[in-house]
Amino acid sequence: MVEQYLRLPYTRRVRPDEGTRGESLFLAGVDELPGCESHGETADEALEWLEDAISMYIGSMLEDGLDPPIPAGSTRPEQPEPAVR
C-alpha cells in the first residue's frame, strides 16, 4: 500500500540549511506531509534520504489506521480488499 502512495506527486522541496556545528547542509521536506524532512550534505543526498522518510511516514500512518495526506488533485489509492477465508 505504501508503494501506491509513493507514486503520488508529493511536492518535495530542498533548501540550504546549517547544521548544529555551523556546517552547510541541505534540508528536504514534503509540503503535504508536515514534519517529514531529511538532511544531506548535498541537495541530491537530502532528496534521496527524503524518499526513505516519506516511506516511513506513510507506512506509520497506515499502520495506525490513519489516511495519509495526499497531494491536491490526487486520488487516494484504493485499499486492497481483505482476503476471504
Score class of each variant (00 low, 15 high):
M1C: 05
M1R: 10
M1E: 14
V2C: 07
V2E: 10
E3Y: 09
Y5E: 02
L6A: 11
L6P: 05
L6H: 08
L6R: 09
R7V: 05
P9C: 09
Y10K: 04
Y10W: 09
T11F: 04
T11H: 14
R12G: 00
V14M: 10
V14I: 14
R15Q: 15
P16L: 07
P16A: 15
E18L: 13
E18I: 15
G19Y: 13
G19N: 12
T20Y: 03
T20D: 14
T20R: 15
T20M: 10
R21I: 03
R21Y: 12
G22H: 10
G22N: 10
E23F: 07
E23W: 06
S24T: 12
S24Q: 15
L25I: 06
L25T: 10
L25H: 10
L27C: 11
G29T: 04
D31C: 01
E32G: 07
E32H: 06
L33K: 06
P34A: 13
P34E: 14
G35M: 08
G35D: 10
G35S: 08
C36D: 02
E37S: 05
E37K: 09
E37T: 15
H39A: 01
G40S: 04
T42F: 06
D44T: 11
E45Y: 05
A46H: 04
L47S: 01
L47T: 02
E48V: 05
L50G: 07
L50S: 03
E51V: 12
E51R: 13
D52M: 05
D52K: 06
D52V: 03
A53L: 06
A53C: 11
I54V: 15
I54K: 10
S55M: 09
Y57M: 03
I58E: 01
I58Y: 01
G59S: 12
S60T: 14
M61Q: 15
M61S: 06
L62C: 06
L62Y: 02
E63W: 02
D64I: 00
G65T: 08
P69E: 03
P69I: 04
I70Q: 02
A72L: 08
G73M: 09
T75I: 12
T75V: 15
R76T: 14
P77C: 06
Q79L: 14
E81S: 08
A83E: 11
R85T: 03
